[in-house]
Simulated assay, not measured.
Amino acid sequence: MKTAMIEREGFASLVLRLRAQGVTDLDLLTACEQTPRTQFVPSQFVSEAYSSRSIPIDCGSFMEGADQAVRILSKLQLKPGHRVLEIGTGSGYLTAVMARIAERVFSVDRFRTLISGAQERVDSLGLRNAIVRQADGMNGMQGEGTFDRIIATAAFSAVPRFYADQLVHGGSMIAPMVIDEENCMMVRLTKTGSRFEREDLFPVSYLPLVPHIASYL
């Protein structure tokens, strides 16, 4: 099947599934439509770009299934004018979709290989408001002010309270939280004063957040 057809049919099927799950944000769906997911998956998985399965990428990482990726972004409640910090760039797909809505997206990953690939894909789409860097996600992004939204794609074992200083008042963070050895929950943490209000969203499967940048990849 040709890539154009995979994009057209895959996105149409994805929208139907998302609507059944209550995801109807037109700005978000338009941003997804304008961001060809086939450009972000490894070539051998192009036919599955819009499937609900996780897709392995370089450095032992993976892309969320298309349904889960958009569902997570819908919970982020991203708006024009927002500044966003993404912990875990991966393929750069979420980075690119968010950049079509937000004013500025800063994304960090510990793997140089992933950063290089993501930057190329983001640049190829002409998205100049996405900044991708190799950095230790455990530190967030120092020196860039505060953010309206933070999204993490690696799991924390405890509420990451040090991120509160990098959020504006009323800002929120979406992140996977390890519940026990077998379970992980996607949560929304909303900053109120100096503390977080936590809302459990839905179960997910994620790799744990690893500190420090990678030495070789």
Rank of each mutant, 00 (worst) to 15 (best):
138 M>Y: 09
217 L>A: 11
114 L>F: 04
113 T>G: 02
155 A>N: 08
28 L>P: 00
105 V>W: 07
129 N>P: 03
29 L>N: 02
10 G>D: 02
65 G>K: 10
21 Q>H: 06
184 C>S: 12
135 A>I: 04
67 D>N: 11
31 A>Y: 01
41 V>P: 01
201 L>F: 06
158 A>N: 05
151 I>F: 03
89 T>Q: 11
154 A>E: 07
113 T>D: 15
80 P>H: 06
165 D>N: 05
68 Q>D: 12
45 F>A: 06
58 D>H: 10
39 Q>D: 13
92 G>C: 07
201 L>Y: 08
11 F>Y: 12
204 V>K: 10
161 R>D: 07
155 A>P: 02
55 I>S: 01
191 K>Y: 07
18 L>V: 02
179 I>P: 00
43 S>V: 14
182 E>D: 05
202 F>Y: 15
72 I>V: 15
90 G>F: 02
66 A>E: 02
124 S>Y: 08
104 R>T: 14
112 R>W: 05
187 V>A: 12
85 L>A: 07
88 G>R: 01
125 L>T: 02
194 S>H: 14
33 E>T: 07
42 P>A: 14
1 M>D: 15
60 G>H: 13
184 C>K: 09
167 L>D: 09
78 L>N: 08
99 A>I: 04
174 I>W: 01
158 A>F: 11
144 E>M: 08
159 V>H: 04
17 R>S: 14
104 R>Q: 15
46 V>N: 03
178 V>L: 13
107 S>Q: 11
39 Q>E: 13
61 S>C: 12
150 I>N: 08
47 S>L: 04
153 T>P: 04
67 D>L: 13
152 A>Y: 10
157 S>N: 12
146 T>Q: 15
201 L>P: 09
188 R>Q: 15
30 T>I: 13
54 S>C: 05
150 I>C: 07
16 L>E: 15
87 I>G: 05
21 Q>L: 14
205 S>D: 12
165 D>L: 04
120 E>L: 15
4 A>T: 13
82 H>C: 08
52 S>C: 03
30 T>F: 07
195 R>L: 15
46 V>D: 04
53 R>G: 01
69 A>V: 14
1 M>W: 12
166 Q>R: 03
162 F>S: 13
161 R>Y: 08
43 S>D: 14
38 T>I: 06
114 L>R: 12
122 V>Q: 01
